[in-house]
Design a protein around this nucleic acid. Structure first.
Lengths: 132, 132
DNA sequence: CTTGACCTTCCAGCTACGGGAAGCCCTATC
DNA sequence: GATAGGGCTTCCCGTAGCTGGAAGGTCAAG
């Protein structure tokens, strides 16, 4: 397969696939004309990457997961550890966003949103929150 | 105030303050020796920026908010619109994270996490989810 | 022979800074 | 007066994970 076909099949932009080759995540073959040639195995790896990225794993985590995926002697504990780390990262981000959301929603709620200049949102941003 | 003092007072790294000057968010005065000189008004703006950034507003949103903050003839509706846009962005991110978390937690839950190679996480990443 | 779709490489830019080098300024101390 | 230190300056590179675009080679169809 050429890059266009594998891009379509894996659901990844061609640019992204070239980038993954750059950083050593995948190593396609080359035709005589210089075109990248992908096998089914390459396609599977790219689809794997697409899904892992879709779950929010970082590129480096994906690299680790891919290595474990290809290691028939892996321990599932190693995979689980990576996933649990990422789960904790997600939880941390969600907590951070939830806190932002809480404060922001309060401010938005307090703002009349009319033609007048008085604005609790700007007031809140201009002074420390009372709860801090 | 010099940059060190205002950095301490605003809770922003000196590097960040210089960056904010670079991108035109703030324009300190200069002493004869080239040092930046900050007034109380500068400090207030920086503290405003620190809080807005802390709520997750982008730099461009901060620029808009700061302009509104300094515009005595603003309409609070304009401020509210920016805040509501950001609130929607936060909600979108939280929903995305929640969906990732849901799928990932299922996979983690199904994984034994022992010395054996069999791993539902890798299996899930290697094939399309049944729910899709 | 030309057109158009594909492919290639390389370079720049995005967000919001952080690290570090090279060097000036100011104060204190000896 | 010399020196040590801390603070300040500019400048440039690096981060994550790509995306866009330029300049150009390749291939099949008409």
């Amino acid at each position: 397969m050429n890059i266009g076909e594998v891009s379509e099949a894996a659901g990844l932009p061609a640019k992204t696939i070239r980038y993954y080759e750059d950083i050593g995540l995948i190593t396609p073959l080359r035709d005589a004309n210089g075109y990248r040639r992908f096998t089914d195995a390459h396609l599977h790896k790219l689809a794997f990457l697409a899904r892992a990225r879709g779950l929010g794993f970082s590129i480096e985590q994906c690299r680790t997961l891919l290595a474990l995926y290809e290691d028939r002697a892996r321990a599932s504990a190693d995979v689980k550890a990576v996933a649990e780390t990422h789960l904790a990262e997600i939880d941390a981000k969600m907590a951070e966003l939830a806190e932002m959301r809480r404060v922001l929603a309060d401010l938005v709620h307090a703002c009349a949103g009319d033609h007048r200049p008085d604005c609790p949102i700007l007031l809140g941003l201009s002074q420390a929150a009372k709860g801090d």
